[in-house]
Amino acid sequence: MRRDDPATDVFEAQRPRLLRLAYRMLGSHAEAEDVVQEAWLRWHRSDRAAVTEPAAWLTRIVSRLCLDAMKSARARRETYPGIWLPEPLIEPADDETRADNITLTLMMALERLSPLERAAFLLHDVFDQPLDDIAATLKRSPAATRQLAARARAHVRIDQPRYEIPREDGEALTRAFFEACRVGDADALGSMLATDATLRSDGGGKVLTFPNAIQGVDRLVRLFLGLSRKLGARMEFLGHAVIDGLPGFVSRIDGHMQTTAVEIVEGRIAAIYITRNPDKLTSLTQPA
């Protein structure tokens, strides 16, 4: 791309927002990059003199490309080995990404929506697009679009994170959780986990994970004690991280990198999300 090209400058100014939108729609950095690259090609080929609002035009193109991509993505996830988690988005991220106020928990909730519901919710509630523009993007009437967004909101049932804790507290709890898992401290684990805590892990069929969600403090404590006996000596803490808005950390276990994000509710860990699929960790570098 020529940096002195005004059309390129217009697109580059929108690129971060378009990438955020595509990632929130697809849950994949690589697919988001592909969509935004295709949007660039269409922008380059378009009659730009006829485009009165480039930001709205590009948002519409990216949204429609994402809707097309979501159809094939859903088909792939039906045969995905084990649990699918979004690719981890690890801070530091730009201020606008943090302002989205979307956590990994909410990203998982969005997976329950139809593609149109997800698009309507994100465009309306997160990216503040005018309803008429969303309707044109989705090729639905404004009334139908409003219903899509309302139905999505009802299914998701959260517009903001339910609880926020200081970053320092999140780091202290996640480090203590890692250490309890490493040494097999049953009492510490029991005190940190909520009664109905749930673990979900994504290995993509490439590395060992748990194929189904595991729920309940007793089951999780037994599981972590077993892992400590087998792998505790090969667990390495690499650094704290904020992962899709949740406190977490990056670690290496038996030579394999992984991210662990936790949802903390009333001071206890209510949900654990572990990503080990190496294809989803390609951009991950060891924290300083």
Rank of each mutant, 00 (worst) to 15 (best):
M1S: 13
R3C: 06
D5V: 08
P6W: 08
A7I: 04
D9M: 15
V10H: 00
R17M: 11
L19D: 02
R24N: 11
M25H: 01
G27K: 02
H29A: 14
H29G: 11
E33Q: 15
E38T: 12
R42F: 03
R42I: 05
S46I: 05
D47E: 12
A49W: 09
A50W: 02
A50T: 13
V51E: 02
P54T: 05
A55H: 07
W57F: 15
L58V: 04
T59N: 09
T59D: 03
R64F: 01
R64D: 03
C66A: 15
A69G: 01
S72L: 11
R74F: 06
R77M: 12
T79D: 15
Y80Q: 09
I83D: 00
W84G: 08
D94A: 01
R98H: 09
A99R: 11
I102F: 05
T103G: 06
T105E: 11
M107I: 03
M107R: 09
S114G: 07
L116K: 10
R118G: 01
A119L: 06
A119G: 05
A120F: 04
L122M: 05
L123W: 01
H124G: 03
V126K: 10
Q129P: 00
Q129G: 02
P130Q: 08
D132L: 13
D132E: 15
D133R: 11
A135M: 06
R140F: 10
A144F: 04
T145C: 07
A150Q: 15
A154Q: 15
I158N: 07
Q160D: 14
Y163S: 12
I165T: 09
G170F: 07
F178G: 01
C181K: 14
G184L: 06
D187H: 11
D187P: 04
A188R: 13
A188K: 10
G190N: 12
L193A: 08
A194H: 08
A194V: 01
D196E: 15
A197G: 05
R200N: 00
S201T: 12
L208Q: 15
T209H: 06
P211L: 05
V217N: 11
D218M: 02
R222M: 10
S228R: 05
L231H: 14
E236R: 13
F237A: 01
P247L: 04
S251P: 00
S251I: 01
S251H: 09
R252Q: 13
H256E: 14
M257P: 05
M257W: 14
E266F: 07
G267W: 04
G267V: 04
I269M: 03
A270S: 15
Y273A: 00
R276G: 10
R276C: 07
T285H: 14
